Simulated scan of single mutants.
Amino acid sequence: MKIFETERLTLRLQTTDDADFILALMNDPSWLQFIGDRGVKTVEEACEYIVNGPLRMYEQFGFCFYLVERKDDQIPLGLCGFAKRESLEDVDIGFAFLPKYWGKGYAYEAASATLAYGIDILGLNRIVAITTQDNEASAKLLEKIGLKFERLVQLSNDAEELRLFSFNFF
Rank of each mutant, 00 (worst) to 15 (best):
L115G: 01
C80F: 06
Y106R: 03
Y58F: 15
D20N: 08
Y117D: 01
I93R: 00
A137E: 07
D134P: 04
C80E: 01
G118K: 07
L13N: 05
I119K: 13
L9F: 12
I50P: 00
E59F: 08
R126F: 09
M57I: 10
N168H: 09
G118R: 04
E89W: 04
L55S: 05
K140D: 01
K140W: 02
F82W: 07
F169Q: 11
L67G: 04
W31L: 05
R12T: 11
I50M: 02
I121L: 05
D134E: 14
L77P: 01
A139H: 04
L25K: 03
F169H: 11
D158E: 12
T15S: 12
L23Y: 09
G36W: 14
D72M: 04
L162T: 09
G94W: 05
L9I: 14
E161H: 11
V51G: 00
I145L: 05
D37Y: 12
L155E: 09
L55N: 08
Y108M: 07
E136C: 06
G53H: 02
L77K: 02
M26C: 12
L55R: 09
V43A: 09
P99F: 13
C64D: 01
D120R: 06
W31E: 00
I75T: 15
T132A: 06
I22S: 00
K104P: 01
E136Q: 10
F4E: 02
E136I: 15
A83Y: 06
L23S: 06
L142A: 03
D120H: 09
T16H: 00
L141I: 13
N27T: 12
A24K: 14
Y58S: 01
E150P: 00
F34Q: 06
L25H: 02
G78Y: 01
D37S: 10
K100S: 08
G123Q: 08
F63C: 03
A113H: 11
D20Q: 07
K148C: 07
A159C: 09
E143T: 12
I145K: 00
N52M: 10
T10R: 04
I145M: 03
S156L: 12
E89T: 14
K2R: 05
I75E: 03
G53F: 07
E59K: 12
Q74A: 12
G36C: 13
T15M: 05
G146N: 07
C80W: 04
F4N: 03
C47P: 00
D28G: 06
S87L: 06
T10V: 15
R151Q: 13
L98V: 14
L115F: 10
L162M: 14
L23D: 03
I93L: 14
I93E: 00
D73F: 00
R85T: 09
N135H: 14
F95Q: 01
G53D: 02
